[in-house]
Design a protein around this nucleic acid. Structure first.
Ligand SMILES: [Mn+2]
Ligand SMILES: [Mn+2]
Ligand SMILES: [Zn+2]
Ligand SMILES: [Zn+2]
Lengths: 137, 137
DNA sequence: TATTAGATGATAATGATTATTATTTGAGAT
DNA sequence: ATCTCAAATAATAATCATTATCATCTAATA
């Protein structure tokens, strides 16, 4: 049961366990395609019709701040949310707003190796993310 | 004189050469740090105080559509504009909103080579862009 | 069960971007 | 050099994602 997991994650971070927070995290995991705040609200309203838009945004921000979610920039500028903590890349569809995860340890090693040798002058690298644009087939 | 160049670029694309378009392109080149629409407006108003906000957005869109500009997604979601046509990557400052260009032919070859062999199943790659986050020093 | 800091819901406000429309103008034709 | 008119602009209003406010509620702890 993954509700238990969600409750644990919230507690570990010292966040109060509220029905809204559980619903929002569950929704993002269930929806599973980098939903927008609006997507999340629409989904949650089915079982939780009184949830407030402001609450959803505030919860999202606090979950991002506590590393339980990541923000994903979309082509349009509308923010999207990602439940995957581990570092990974994204495939952007050039025709639709679809965004899929792309994980590739070998590629990461290749790039990390490259920059370990070369570096970037005047810049300390914290994180490298690939934005791979193209079409799904 | 680079105004001549700007005029040429506009004509080549079949766009009418207007003072507003020249001013906007010049501003982006001059500002040279991926300015927002607001940055551009502020800069232009000095010499061109009557320019309309809507015009700036419309000109930016048409320049993007005609491949004279690129959009750059920022952390905050506010769109930024880039006069560099050639494919390149970006360095994002983790503390400020600074965005710098990063070009690296060797790196591109490395990544292209990797994907030429491996590919991504169910996905046709059109373009790969690195978002390198860290701090300038 | 009582306490209370923190969370929520309702609502208004912001701020970036887009839409609308009357007026102006760039560029080709005369 | 004027004429013509599709396209561009300025002024203004509208949209829409996100944020702010604040009265009410509630999860966690004692
Ligand atoms: Mn937010
Ligand atoms: Mn735009
Ligand atoms: Zn993801
Ligand atoms: Zn750039």
């Amino acid at each position: 049961m993954e509700i238990k997991e969600i409750v644990n994650k919230l507690s570990e971070k010292g966040l109060r366990v509220t029905p809204q927070r559980i619903a929002i995290l569950s929704a993002i995991i269930k929806l599973n395609n980098h939903p927008t705040a609006e997507n999340i609200i629409e989904y949650i309203k089915k079982n939780h019709p009184n949830i407030s838009v402001g609450t959803v945004y505030k919860v999202l921000d606090s979950l991002v701040e506590n590393n339980l979610l990541k923000k994903v920039k979309s082509e349009s500028g509308i923010m999207r949310y990602d439940p995957t903590q581990s570092n990974h890349h994204h495939l952007y569809c050039a025709q639709t707003d679809r965004i899929e995860d792309y994980e590739d340890e070998k590629l990461d090693e290749l790039i990390t190796g490259y920059f370990n040798q070369k570096g970037i002058r005047n810049f300390k690298i914290q994180n490298i993310q690939l934005q791979i644009t193209g079409t799904f087939k």
